[in-house]
Design a binder for these strands. Structure first.
Lengths: 336, 336
DNA sequence: CGGCGATATGACATCGCTGTCATATGCTGA
DNA sequence: TCAGCATATGACAGCGATGTCATATCGCCG
């Protein structure tokens, strides 16, 4: 009995079900657990008793006795309200629920310390596997989870210094697509308002743009503005860029937050610069913004599947899946 | 030992920590549990031993022994990718994490059966409290959870036939604000593309609009289009409305999905109708869409607090909090 | 018809931890 | 000096389920 009577009705236990069905504890456990070697008759009477008592298995006891882990999967992201992350969460949930698993979400706020905290917290809660969009630059810490038998899958950002499964977009090609598209449209002054400079996604996209632009006559290195990750900082960068003597004719937004900031800032302009973004948030179509993006849902689905696959076979080689990105050209980069 | 050796290192147990620290099991438990009556010296040696062994308490065992419930709070919504829900999730998480609690999310897909399934599932997982944006019309089923001592808080949609805490927006006033705003702007043919017809939010908003419009000379009842909840159906309604002999001069969108559909459909129009929506998604500002909305974050915060408060005192009267909505006028309803 | 494998059931220990109660020690104040 | 209390620690019994092993029953084959 706990300290205070919370007014909670005591939950029926398996023993009560067994008693009511007139069988032993273990037999009741078998029936409810769907094990074999239970006669039809017994099965029915146990199920009936359970239904009558409105019995629900005590997960804590069950987990403890069986030594299993909870059927839940943890997802660590930086910010739920970012549509990129929520789409990811949805995709993961869709994939695991049919398997009887359950999604616990945790928020790192894009902070490495916070991320480590929540990762350990998830482990502590017997989470079976963890999917992470990591804000860390080095992932050796995650070895702790792996050592405890908890598979870790890296999404969107690959694992550094750790053997683990990962799914990422082909950001380098994405960067090339963006650069080539803008070059084709005649732009020669191209600004890139990037994401956090340490982000692998950012660096890959940057490298991809370099692949194309560095061999061209376009100006862009001096128009590079890393370290924006939210609407406000993005807007500040846009203002600064547009105030230049020779302002960019095209702006590349490093993620959907930055893109929103850019769009807000140029909304009222007479002759706005061309704009293209990474990610394809739902509102991009209405605004007619061109983007280079991959399918977030696929990213989530694959991540979930990798986690499940590793749960089933821990000896498999770590797998790195790359999901393609494609260009969706809309009004914002149309020829004028 | 479980069936297969998963390659997982066996987690150290409290007994090992105690042995290493040279104290009894219970003392180690005290030290790690932050109980009183532990000397400085013992505390240190236990903590050191735990650190050395990389000990993490087995949550299942702990919960079982203490009879407590997991420190996790379940949130049931209809669709994570809807920014309304993800903002809610974020707000709830922000509110409970400092309290050491943890958020489990579940998706009802706006289906009553699915909702019941996930609610029971959450209960089964020892969830401490449940916050729900319910897709049910009758909430008696939730009495099961309450009977098990699991507080249930209803968000955005009030509880029907059940005594429970709830937080909702003042949708009726919201409806009035919308109607009055449009009347003031000179509109007399007002279409309302609503949400699911059974939704309390929809009905309240409708009632509010009626409060204002029914006494006016405006046409609107025949321009009412309930039962849209997604972009596609909203667009269909817009097309149909605009094809009328006397099309509406203003369109009211029942939620952010519908609003997006409306905006997509009228994006290319020469002389688009005025538009106003309920909810204030992040993109509304860029698009210059007027809206009537309340603070989702506040809704989430309050819901979390109500849940926590009831956890602390189950005898309190069920509380119904109403959060105000306000009008944010933007270009889409500007005088022309 | 004896014996063996498949089926069905139960007794009991056990998972890792916390609550309860007993015990030991050190101070304080009368 | 000693009762009386706060402090510190440990022994032990569970929490509610499942795993293991023993046992019982039955049908079927040789």
């Amino acid at each position: 009995m706990t300290s205070a009577d919370d007014g909670a009705a005591p939950r029926p236990t398996l023993a009560q079900v067994a008693a009511r069905a007139g069988v032993s504890l273990k037999t009741a456990s078998r029936a409810l657990g769907g094990e074999s070697y239970v006669s039809e008759k017994t099965l029915h009477s146990v199920l009936a008793a359970a239904a009558e008592l409105d019995y629900q298995r005590n997960a804590a006891a069950s987990l403890l006795a069986s030594g299993r882990l909870a059927d839940s999967l943890g997802l660590i992201t930086g910010d739920f309200t970012n549509p990129f992350y929520s789409a990811l969460a949805q995709a993961v949930e869709d994939e695991i629920r049919p398997r009887g698993m359950h999604l616990s979400v945790a928020n790192s706020r894009e902070s490495a310390e916070q991320e480590q905290r929540v990762a350990l917290d998830l482990a502590h809660r017997q989470t079976k596997a963890v999917i992470t969009v990591s804000a860390m630059v080095d992932h050796r810490e995650y070895a702790q989870l792996q050592a405890r038998g908890i598979p870790v899958v890296f999404v969107d950002r690959p694992a550094e210094n750790l053997a683990a499964d990962s799914v990422v977009f082909d950001n380098r090609v994405g960067g090339r697509l963006v650069a080539q598209h803008l070059l084709d449209r005649g732009h020669r002054r191209i600004a890139f308002i990037g994401d956090y400079a340490w982000l692998p996604t950012y660096r890959q996209r940057l490298a991809g743009m370099g692949d194309v632009l560095d061999g061209s006559d376009a100006h862009w290195r001096e128009l590079l503005r890393p370290d924006a990750h939210d609407v406000a900082s993005a807007r500040a960068h846009v203002r600064e860029l547009l105030a230049l003597d020779e302002p960019p004719t095209a702006i590349v937004a490093g993620n959907n937050r930055v893109l929103l900031g850019v769009m807000e800032e140029i909304a009222e302009l007479e002759a706005p610069p061309a704009v293209i973004g990474f990610d394809d948030p739902e509102w991009a179509r209405v605004l007619g913004v061109s983007v280079v993006a991959g399918e977030v849902e696929e990213l989530g689905r694959i991540a979930a599947r990798l986690a499940v696959a590793r749960l089933a076979d821990r000896t498999r080689e770590p797998e790195s899946v790359v999901v393609p990105m494609r260009l969706i050209a809309r009004r914002s980069t149309a020829r004028r």
